[in-house]
Amino acid sequence: MKIKNLTTSFRVLDDYYAAVDNVTLTVNKNEVLAIVGESGSGKSALAFSIMGLHNRAKIEGTLDFKGQNIAKYSQGKLNKLRGKEMAMIFQDSLSALNPLMIVGAQIDEALLLHNSSMSKKDRKVRVIDFLSKVGIPRPEKTYEQYPHELSGGMRQRVVIAMAIANQPELLIADEPTTALDVTIQAQILDLIKDLKDDMRAGIILITHDLGVVAEMADRVAVMYAGQIVEIADVYSLFSSPQHPYTRSLLNSLPNSAETKTKLHVIQGVVPPLHKMPREGCRFRHRIPWIDESSHEENPELHEIKPGHFVRCTCYKDFYFPDKHKEASGNGAT
């Protein structure tokens, strides 16, 4: 999957504003690409655009999936692809499942849509097979159960089983573990890892949890205000993060080594869509102590190491203000 210059704009008060702004990304087979960012950074909008799930948004750019530009596909044509060659795991498993259908029938439906020739009996065997593959202890029983009878972790497994039923080549997981407890989260992440090794699919993992990223990803793209500000493989991103935003994010997490200390706070907030600065470095308002001259006028992604891209030149001059300044500057007003 190659995404080129993708821009997704939403209509706000008769004007279009880009929530995803000129994003270029590649996902390879057998790779987990993590997309990280705060709420409002456009990471979910990106995922929905790839799946063609935005009805009212204006989408520009090309989405090259196995050599074809699916951005131009009609919904009917997309329906043939979705669920079969690309699939999505949603955050909230309770609302992703139909409460009135037994779980088995819902997975069966996904199979039926794309394999109309399969007999009912074969499909049932397949569904039960998938249910046990995602680690559901008694798949025959779960087949007959309704979503509300299952726990959150089990439901998320069902959603995953549904997504992988047709062995897609591209899997998008939008915050797959955010609603789950830590121990369940660990299990689901291990499951996704196993599935990746099994199916050799490309996975786009969307999350705000940097811990999950460090556990799962091969490559990481950090998004801020609709743009990608840094892309690198997971090892270089965590060992030598470059962009001020990436560094601030990593610094704002509680560290197990030093407790009871002050956490780093990023000043200000992510600007709302219609107030987003469209020129210059979008992060500059949140690091006002950095001199204006260190920003580029039209920030671009620079390759600083093979495979490690950073937007804008401000990373060269970036430093954290000292602890004292940080304390007085954490007001959000």
Binding site: E38, S39, H208, L210, S248, L249, S252, L253, P254, K262, L263, H264, V265, I266, V269, A327, N330, A332
Partner: peptide, 10 residues
Amino acid sequence: DVSVQAQVLN
């Protein structure tokens, strides 16, 4: 969000 989380915890 993480950055806001840091703010509130501090």
